[in-house]
Design a protein around this nucleic acid. Structure first.
Lengths: 181, 181, 181, 181
DNA sequence: AATGAATGAGTATTCATTCAT
DNA sequence: GATGAATGAATACTCATTCAT
């Protein structure tokens, strides 16, 4: 799975052949099909694991925090930290979103992740810290968009450190949900 | 190109065969290769056209506006309007970002688009309307991230109207660049 | 026909497309099929013309000569001279011998050419100048083989002048039919 | 390789498709590409093997013989015997000479074969048995030409036995190199 | 006479998958 | 558990040929 992840991320899912994977691993084709039903299933499994892992990371980060705003911040920071370490998985997630075969599998995981944020936003609204005319769902997605795009641009493309980028992401997002221009 | 765009968007670039395209069009395989050197070139041509068209739309939207903040807003609204009408092209752009063969072609167009926004942000900073410790580049990308993600989620997935989503995008982004939490 | 000949000779019959021929000539595909029924027919026509032309050259060379041995010599020299000027046609003849579609068309012309030489040999045998236990047909083909191979090796590959090579061909062949080791 | 040889020889290299070869063999298309990189490579491999085999046959034939003239004779006889048994390979060699892609591969083998004969001729000249004004290279090629052409005409086309044709080839060639008309 | 867009059968080649060993 | 030879449907692409203009 690790090797497949790196090949898929580097060249794309379709341009990577099962042959290439097993050859690169120095094993026969048989073992591939012993462990996976198909190339598609390998991809799906990688995808599931990645989403599970990211989720765990986010949960751990906010576990001890009661303040919803702080939980949002910690969640964002955890996401960026994870993204920095899982460049390849992140690329695969991005690709999965572009192909009919995989969107379904992707959706569930992303829905769960967003639902978390939505919960925090709602709590903050209840506490009167975010305007109550705001749509929690929209705010959550906006923050996901900021985090994702800045990760790809500044961490992946420009090689900046996740910590610094996270500061900016948090700043922008908190202003976005709390600010009053 | 129109038909290819829709097939590519629906099933993905690789799962769509040249055969399928020409059959769906009711023409022979030869015509395809009369007009395009390869399947790859067709994709590249679609990509280029899409980026050119979006750019034109943005330029037209801000042509008469002097205020940089208003230009940012109009640019965002124009992007969402275009995205609503060019769902398929947008998906192709997303896919292009995931495959080595196409990233190069994509980059240039996106760099130009972001450069525009950066210019407006800098102008607003010069006017003292945005804190001068902000990184214009980062702010620009953050807004691109918000617009892109909310478009995909609310316009494409949930079928909401571009106008309403644009209001939210603008609100979030302006708070993000101007707000003081 | 001239252009086709050169392309066929340079790259081979199959690797040369009709498209390449008409493009190289700056004309449309229509004209090609106005003058020739097919690519195959063009080749056949080139082949026929080449054989006719070679034959004419040989006939002219021996027209005024009565001595059969001298006629053989003059015929050989004429063949080499023609071959020097018609490198491309010669290559096509060689190719034609390797493909089922063309062997038939080739045979006739070659039979005629050999028959000429056979006639001279028989005459020389009748005059008692060549041993009467010799097979005229075999002697004729042997000489054709010498002429053909030395042409390809020394004139085509090594770029030597036809005149000098012809001297050697004649010397070897005359010893071959007359000599007594 | 055996089946490919016969198809190539019968219809020509280009008119023979990989499809036809694997179908005729009752195997899947994949096996072909498991053993050969391409159709071209199959041809090249056949060519190389044929040349190697012919060479070995010639070497064996002359191994125990000291007299250079006798070595020439034995070499010619070995060549004709081989040619009788390898009709198809011989045709392929002939075709290879007409296409740019293959001439290179052909040349080396033929150069080696001729170099052998040249060596014998030179030795015979040194022994004073062949006129010392003769060009060994030319004599060698002349003999190759005789052997090749008579093989094709009398063995392949007319179905005569290699033994009888070899007698004629040897007689003609020895007169050609030794005779004094 | 000539053009060149259009056809579609045909080509070499790839690759996910199977299965006897 | 593991191998890798074998399968064959599928792919991108070519090209001789046609025909409306």
């Amino acid at each position: 799975m690790a090797f497949g992840t790196s090949r898929f991320a580097e060249q794309g899912y379709h341009p990577t052949s099962v042959s290439e994977i097993v050859t690169g691993l120095g094993v026969g084709k048989g073992v591939f099909y012993w462990y996976f039903d198909s190339k598609e299933q390998l991809f799906l499994e990688i995808l599931r694991d990645a989403q599970t892992d990211l989720r765990r990371r986010q949960q751990q980060a906010i576990a001890e925090e009661d303040d919803p705003i702080r939980r949002i911040e910690l969640g964002l920071r955890a996401s960026l930290a994870w993204a920095e370490e899982h460049r390849d998985h992140n690329r695969l997630i991005q690709f999965a979103a572009t192909e009919a075969t995989f969107v379904g599998a992707l959706r569930r995981g992303q829905d769960i992740a967003v639902a978390d944020v939505v919960r925090h936003v709602k709590e903050a609204i209840a506490q009167g810290r975010i305007r109550d005319d705001a749509d929690p769902d929209l705010l959550a997605h906006a923050m996901v968009g900021v985090a994702g795009h800045l990760t790809r641009t500044f961490i992946y493309e420009r090689g900046e450190a996740a910590g610094g980028v996270a500061d900016s992401v948090v700043a922008f997002c908190l202003r976005g949900i709390l600010g009053d221009p």
